[in-house]
Design a protein around this nucleic acid. Structure first.
Lengths: 343, 343
DNA sequence: ATTAGCACTCAACTCTAACGAGTGCTAACA
DNA sequence: TGTTAGCACTCGTTAGAGTTGAGTGCTAAT
């Protein structure tokens, strides 16, 4: 399995040249640009071996070699230098984020835009998952006769609201009392557990307005379930039109259609709960993505994973660069989010 | 200026055939498919006239004719039959909307998706503009020591919230009182006027917690200004890849880049405050859109315009169909929105 | 006023030949 | 035994030439 130094160098040269040029790499190119002390003939021999081992392949007889998925994998796992972000890039990320103290969803979308701009690929992102966080505050506000606004704040700083319709009018002070009691019994409970708990506690502690509560609760639970609709956004889709692998209008169309399959993207992002996750070409579970590579990572609040971001690009991706950007991005995102919440 | 019946028929035939086929239309085609009693030679003569008048043009000498922007304009203004939506389409719109009682922003996005699906072009849409609506309720909620959540509800049913950071702790009951006073003095005021009013009223009525108020107000005003960031979404961008006019990867790329210019889209939507607005090709203010046509309309709450939706497609657009869909869509949207709010 | 006929134009397509980048193999060399 | 030079071969790409066909404008006849 060990390749020998020269084979490694040749493989690396092929991969890096191909990442830059998107053209098959020939033995002569390598001999001229990378291994200047070795003749093209020798390199041809080595390349034949590498091809036999499955690290590179030939699109057709009289063309140079391109890396296979297996080749990329080896490259990512063993050969790729961890690229340092240059300071201006690093700064950019930091600056952009500190400018955006505000709604959490906006922050996430902003991150997505930034990510696609910096990588020049397409970014995908999920909004924070509410149900994994813990209730911090709940408040019912009367708007009209029969209309109540429920506000839910979780420990991840996520605010969700929903309008409840009631059959009859409920006075403000009763709503205030109900809010208080709900807070007392539910504060700190994980959102996904609330539905169960509310129902159980119905009998205790709400003496005097049980009837009203029975109207509010189902609606409220509905809201909680509803509010967990995680959304998937993408940004920079147009970037891929600049890549030669999508010059074919058909391939471009297929790519765009895949991007509109939100469920698929959601699953892809959900599956990768590693700190940072790299799927190369055929390694992808979904057929539509098997000519792409995906780099995904999760963002956290207080160490708790609440969402994911990622980059989709061609298998010929600038792995090193993208990985460091995604990494830096999630770190900053998690930092800022945690700060926003903690203050 | 009056064309004469046969010229009108020929122009109409050219436009409708071109809308369907995206191919230049020749005299023979018209003679065979549309004006079967007239020979191609006669039609050629008429076409020469129409070209001289600027209603049609020839991409190159030995090709058929295609409509000019002026031709489309005449068609839209005078010749186009108002297409009835077939019942299933009409139903679809109604059904989809009634299913989506929920957050207003979500409703808008859903409309956008539906619009692009039904037209097979790209839809664009603005979220509701807060500043044109009137304050219905404002509420401050204490989250932590020093952290306050401000909730703003407007008469259009829009809910916005924002976290305020204060230098020192403010007890809940004071916040409650402030909320009450703010409500009394601001309820019914147009959002864009609030900043002025708040400052003016600072001296009256808030005796006892003026100091606290002075901390909260600037932040609150900030929120109000901030909350008016109208966002622009689009959907169905991939649809245009199915059109022959965007088969050229370069044109596709330019189109996608235009879609990412949110400011431009926003202005386009803002400019068209007519009930329904049609811009054809070169009529568009922005150069990037001059090979497209745009159909936009506004949606309302209680008769008050709060946002716009629209469709972008090639100048060869199915005007009749799109207009009726956009029209139906905005009517339903306005209805539902008004109902949601009124209840 | 309409139409048939004809010469003309020009994009699109097909076919072919030349080109050149790259390979594999062989034989010579260190 | 590993390396290299040389050479024949492959095959995608490009450019040019020829062909086709849809469509036009013009003219003369009806």
């Amino acid at each position: 399995m060990n390749l020998g130094d020269r084979k490694r160098l040749i493989l690396q040269a092929i991969i890096e040249d191909y990442i830059n040029t998107a053209e098959p790499v020939g033995s002569r190119t390598i001999s001229k640009k990378y291994l200047t002390n070795t003749s093209s003939a020798t390199i041809r021999n080595e390349m034949a071996d590498l091809e036999e081992m499955g690290y590179i392949e030939q699109p057709h007889t009289s063309a140079g070699r391109i890396p296979s998925d297996k080749g990329y994998r080896l490259y990512v796992d063993q050969m790729m230098g961890q690229q340092e972000l240059n300071k201006s890039q690093d700064d950019l990320i930091k600056r952009e984020f500190t400018d955006t103290l505000g709604e959490i969803d906006r922050l996430i979308k902003h991150a997505s835009k930034l990510l696609s701009q910096m990588t020049q690929y397409t970014s995908i992102i999920t909004t924070p998952q509410v149900k994994k966080t813990y209730l911090k505050h709940i408040q019912l506000i009367k708007i009209d006769a029969g209309t109540v606004l429920a506000i839910i704040i979780t420990d991840a700083g996520i605010v969700r609201n929903s309008v409840l319709r009631l059959m009859r009018d409920v006075p403000s002070d009763i709503l205030e009392k109900i809010s208080k009691t709900l807070n007392e019994s539910l504060c700190g409970v994980c959102i996904e557990d609330i539905a169960g708990i509310i129902l159980k506690d119905t009998d205790e502690g709400y003496a005097g307005y049980k009837e009203i509560l029975e109207q509010i609760l189902p609606e409220l639970i509905q809201t909680l379930i509803y509010s967990d609709k995680v959304e998937v956004y993408h940004d920079g889709a147009a970037n891929i039109l600049n890549l030669p692998e999508f010059n074919d209008i058909d391939k471009a169309r297929r790519f765009f259609n895949t991007l509109e399959e939100k469920d698929l993207l959601f699953n892809v992002l959900k599956d990768s709960q590693e700190n940072i996750n790299i799927s190369i070409g055929s390694e992808n579970k979904y057929e539509q993505l098997q000519n792409c590579s995906l780099i995904t990572a999760t963002y956290k609040v207080n160490g708790k994973t609440i969402g994911s971001i990622g980059v989709i690009g061609p298998t010929r991706m600038e792995y090193s660069k993208v990985i460091s950007i995604v990494d830096c991005m999630t770190n900053n995102l998690s930092d800022i989010l945690t700060k926003i919440i903690k203050y």
